[in-house]
Every structure is written in structure tokens, then in C-alpha cells.
Amino acid sequence: MQFEGATAIVTGAGQGIGAALARALAARGARVLVCDLSEDLAKRMADEVGGVPFHGDLCDPAVIESLVGTARAQFGSIDMLVSNAGFALGEPDGPTSQSDVHWQTSWDLHVMAHLRASRLLLPDMRARGFGVLVNVASAAGVLSQIGDAAYSATKHAAVSLAQSLAIEHSAEGIQVSVVCPLYVATPLLGYKGTEGDRPDRVIDPTEVAEATLRGIEEARFMIYPHPEAQTYFKHRAADSDRWIAGMQRLRARVTEQTDGSDPASIHRFI
């Protein structure tokens, strides 16, 4: 994959990992459409990287159609989709305590937004015999997120969708990658910037961006910015009962010392 002169859509690009990805792509010569729910954040980041701003709620299929239409009007063909937009709110009292609206929003943003954008972009990518589809999921998509079942379930679905896209379309020149970081110093975990004390394994968004682009260059499907996440995944696959028992012990520690409904509090125990 050559980034120089490539065109890319990056969602959730106003801050955090998405902003780091937009900067890294632009630094390598790519033209970037910066998409964010916030109009102000989208414009600020687009101005910074010399890109195109777009804002809107990606849970709405009409917004995704407008997103792709704007990218095509600005760039012509689209070489890369990086679906990074996401959110986590936690749950007050276990998996059943969050509303259907919360679950549906998680599904629409973490899974359907990528599917709907891919559906619109794939015909042209297949005709050209080239395209890159990247989903920034989470290590929760191969492990579990204590305190937010909707996040875990939909990130698992995002990984599964990426697998299906890779299986179905790789022979047509479509490269698919899924990114599964553990904890990253973003607003999702309560970090407003990259400065300040944090646990060693809470990494900077720029590290995720660099690992992602390196993985794309190497045409890797699974990209682990935290290498230990792959080791944890192997343990989970090898002995699920032991893995669940370990996670139950971790949950007990978290709920004893923090509000266990807040996913941002979990990272202090990794």
C-alpha cells in the first residue's frame, strides 16, 4: 500500500485515535476526508491536515451516503476507508441494564456504519481491483470489556464483519484490516491530551496510528498495537473457562475499588 497520493476517509477523526490517523496519513502524502460527529472538531482537524471536513451522525444511513458522496466529489475515487468512530458509556448494573437504544446505537455505529460505507465503496474498489477497508475495533472485540457488554458485543461483531469482508473480497484486490488496541490515552478513557501520568500500557494515539499504517503496509489482517492483546486472545481461545475465571476476579477488584459501570476506570487495573 502506497499512501502518497492515496485518498482516505477517516471517521471519528476529530480527536483521539482518529485524529492521529488523519495526521499520519496526511504526513505520508494521503488526501484525507476528516469525519466527526462534531462540526468544530472535523473542521479543526481538516484545517490542520489540509483535508476535507465532514460532520454527521454515522448511525444514520443517509449521513453515510452523504459522507461517501462528499468524498467522491472532492477526491474522485476512494482508496481507503478507516472506520474509527466509536463510543462507550458503560452499564449501571450488568449487560441487561442498558437500554435497547444504547445497544442499537452501539450496533449502528460499530458495525453498520462500516458495513454501509463499505457497501457504497466496494463496487468502485472491485472495478479498479484495489481498495483498503480498515475497522478500528478494539481488543474488546477479541477479549471482553468489563462494564460495557454492548461495546464488547458490537466490537466482536466488527471483527467478524472484517473477517467476512476479507474472505469474500481479497481475491478482488480488496485489502481488509481490523485494529484491536487495548487501552489508549483518548477522551474515551478520560484523557484530554497526551501529557500526564498514566499506566505504561495505556499508549498514545500516535502509537496506534503508526501501528495501523505499518500493518496496512504489511497487508496484515489483525493489527495489535498492544502485542500482549494477541497473547491474551490465545489464552482465551485455549481455555475459555480459565479466562472467564480470571476476568471474574478482575471484575471483583474493579467493582471493589471503583464504580464498575465506568469502562474508563478499568484501565487502572491492567
Score class of each variant (00 low, 15 high):
S138Q: 04
D100A: 15
P61K: 06
V254Y: 14
A252S: 13
V202Q: 10
L143Y: 04
S99R: 09
L33I: 07
A140N: 06
A264E: 09
H110L: 02
V32D: 03
C59W: 02
E39H: 14
A46C: 14
V176Y: 01
S177G: 11
S66I: 03
P199S: 15
V32A: 08
A13Y: 06
S265I: 05
S160Y: 01
L33N: 05
S265F: 09
R251S: 14
R128C: 14
E91N: 04
G50D: 09
M112F: 02
A211T: 11
A252N: 11
R72G: 08
T11A: 07
C35F: 04
S106V: 03
Q248Y: 06
A127L: 12
K155M: 02
H267F: 09
S66L: 07
D241V: 15
M247L: 12
V134M: 02
D100Y: 06
D239C: 07
D60E: 14
P227N: 10
A209R: 08
G190N: 14
Q98W: 00
G76I: 11
T11S: 12
D100K: 07
T206L: 12
L33S: 05
D259A: 12
P187L: 07
V159S: 03
G50K: 10
T154F: 01
L89S: 14
L109S: 00
F3V: 04
S138V: 03
H110A: 03
H114Y: 04
I9W: 05
M1L: 10
L182A: 15
L37K: 14
R28F: 07
D124V: 05
E39Q: 14
L89D: 13
A62N: 12
V10L: 08
T96M: 08
A185S: 15
L58A: 00
A150M: 04
R249L: 12
I167R: 14
G90L: 14
A149L: 02
G246E: 11
A219E: 09
G51W: 09
V10R: 03
A20N: 06
E39T: 14
A22D: 09
D124C: 05
